[in-house]
């Protein structure tokens, strides 16, 4: 996962922004507790989204506590308290996805990148083992994704749907594991599938220039450059629209304002930034 699942801060209420930050800080703390000080650096917005969604689904957020930030002892932080293992699960997902990302970099990164990865990988394999042992479901889904992805990248005729499928399926599987009944399982699968698809495609759109230069795989490589941005926008929009339709059936209560904000403002705004190079949060400056 790559950090595209952001909020649009200018459209959040102040208390919602505080709550969002406190989930972020809570997850950071859990990463430190479960693994190591260093794994805190792997914290991403995507995993924050996952943690917040889990807490919202399980209604397990029990309030906010004050504490101090480990990175800046002078700063006071609020932490969202959680009664279930949402934070641990999100930490595990974070560690597992960073581990696979590193392995992927090792396969097609440059010389210096490979060197750095070789240094970091032994640490991460240890943490990865620990995470995989605690949440075998996450590990299975991630491993299956990597395998399917490698397979699909060998096929030169694979369309964008096929290329996005492994990532989409992984997130669909991971989220649907939270469901209590069959209806909810289908809703969560559809939601996760389309969010995963969106992440994969926006990452591909973001990396297109670099991948063309380095001759790496990219699903948009075979597309005509004329009208490419419009095409990318409509494909991404479609994923969001389907994710939103599924999300509407979830009946979230906790963190609803923040999740709504992400789906309706945060993700489209991120999409505009990536595809059209527009400034993020530009409406904040005009106020």
């Amino acid at each position: 996962m790559f950090g595209y699942l952001q909020v649009q801060k200018s459209e959040l209420k102040v208390r919602e922004w505080e709550a969002y930050k406190s989930v972020y800080c809570g997850l950071c703390r859990q990463l430190g507790r479960d693994y190591s000080f260093l794994t805190r650096l792997s914290l991403s917005y995507d995993c924050t989204f996952y943690a917040m969604l889990l807490m919202s689904l399980e209604r397990s957020c029990s309030g906010f506590q004050s504490g101090r930030c480990r990175f800046d002892p002078l700063k006071k932080c609020k932490f969202a308290a959680c009664e279930s293992d949402s934070y641990s699960k999100a930490s595990a997902l974070s560690v597992i996805s960073v581990y696979y990302k590193l392995k992927d970099d090792l396969a097609d990164g440059g010389f210096f990148k490979k060197l750095a990865v070789r240094l970091a990988l032994p640490f991460f394999s240890r943490w990865h083992k620990k995470a995989a042992k605690r949440y075998p479901m996450l590990e299975e889904a991630a491993a299956a994704m990597m395998e399917a992805q490698t397979e699909i990248e060998r096929d030169p005729d694979a369309g964008i749907d096929a290329c996005a499928h492994p990532t989409a399926h992984m997130l669909g599987t991971v989220l649907s594991a939270e469901a209590s009944d069959d209806g909810k399982r289908r809703v969560l699968y559809e939601f996760g599938y389309n969010i995963g698809r969106w992440i994969y495609l926006i990452d591909a759109a973001d990396d297109l220039e670099k991948d063309v230069k380095k001759n790496n795989f990219n699903p948009f490589k075979n597309c005509e450059s004329e009208g490419l941005r419009e095409y990318q926008t409509s494909v991404l929009n479609q994923s969001l629209a389907r994710a939103h339709a599924a999300y509407s059936l979830l009946d979230t209560v906790d963190f609803k304002g923040i999740l709504d904000n992400m789906l309706l403002y945060g993700f489209p705004s991120k999409q505009n930034t990536v595809i059209y190079g527009l400034q993020e949060e530009k409406d904040e400056r005009s106020v």
Binding site: T233, L264, Y276
Partner: peptide, 20 residues
């Protein structure tokens, strides 16, 4: 239906950049 989805303007947020 799919054309609508490809426009995604539920939140009133316009995707497609300011030029469009």
């Amino acid at each position: 239906n799919v054309t609508n989805q490809r426009n995604y303007n539920y939140g009133g947020y316009k995707t497609g950049g300011s030029t469009v």
